[in-house]
């Protein structure tokens, strides 16, 4: 055989991670307002995209809150869901870093397709907590996937990746 898998075309995609990381780091720099001229940033966002990014941050904030509610209502879920909740929080941190001006709590309107009530409601009971949570994880994955095509560069990659991660979480809660 020739062409080791580690240098195969798939691995070629791995090697491009550094470039992708650079793009995302650029997004984070933009978020902190440290760039000299954001207009010159090829990955700059429009005002409408700023609002949409804030909406996606809110989607994720709602999901993180849903994890907390479900774990409170059904502590036995911790075995499965505590690690998933940690991952959801990590996703929230990265979305905030990529969203210019996003603070600890977003004031953006809910993203399309996201029930506004999910920010404040809770699972019906302990027995239903798992399914209640799975539904919300799926809704968040759908919302990020729907938002992804409206962006370019590192933000599109981040939204797509977060959506994919949440699809995996939903599968674990099924």
């Amino acid at each position: 055989m020739s062409g080791p898998l580690s240098s195969s075309p798939a691995a070629g995609a791995f090697s491009r991670r550094s470039l992708l990381l650079g793009t995302l780091a650029g997004a984070a720099v933009l978020a902190t307002g440290c760039t000299g001229d954001p207009v010159e940033d090829a990955d700059a966002v429009t005002p409408a995209q700023v609002d949409q990014l804030a909406a996606q941050v809110q989607v994720q904030e709602t999901l993180v809150a849903a994890y907390a509610s479900a774990l409170t209502a059904a502590p036995e879920l911790a075995t499965t869901a505590a690690g998933l909740a940690d991952q959801a929080r990590a996703q929230l941190d990265r979305l905030r870093a990529a969203a210019p001006g996003a603070g600890a709590t977003s004031s953006a309107p809910p993203a399309p397709g996201t029930p506004a009530a999910t920010a404040t409601d809770g699972p019906p009971d302990a027995a239903g907590a798992r399914e209640w949570l799975r539904t919300r994880v799926t809704a968040a994955a759908d919302a990020h996937a729907a938002a992804c095509p409206a962006f370019t560069g590192g933000r599109a990659a981040l939204l797509g990746s977060v959506s994919a991660g949440l699809r995996g979480q939903a599968g674990q809660l099924a």
Binding site: Q87, A90, Q91, R94, A157, L158
Partner: peptide
Amino acid sequence: TPVTTPFPGLP
């Protein structure tokens, strides 16, 4: 473990 990852495909 874990079987899930928060950022598939990203560094």
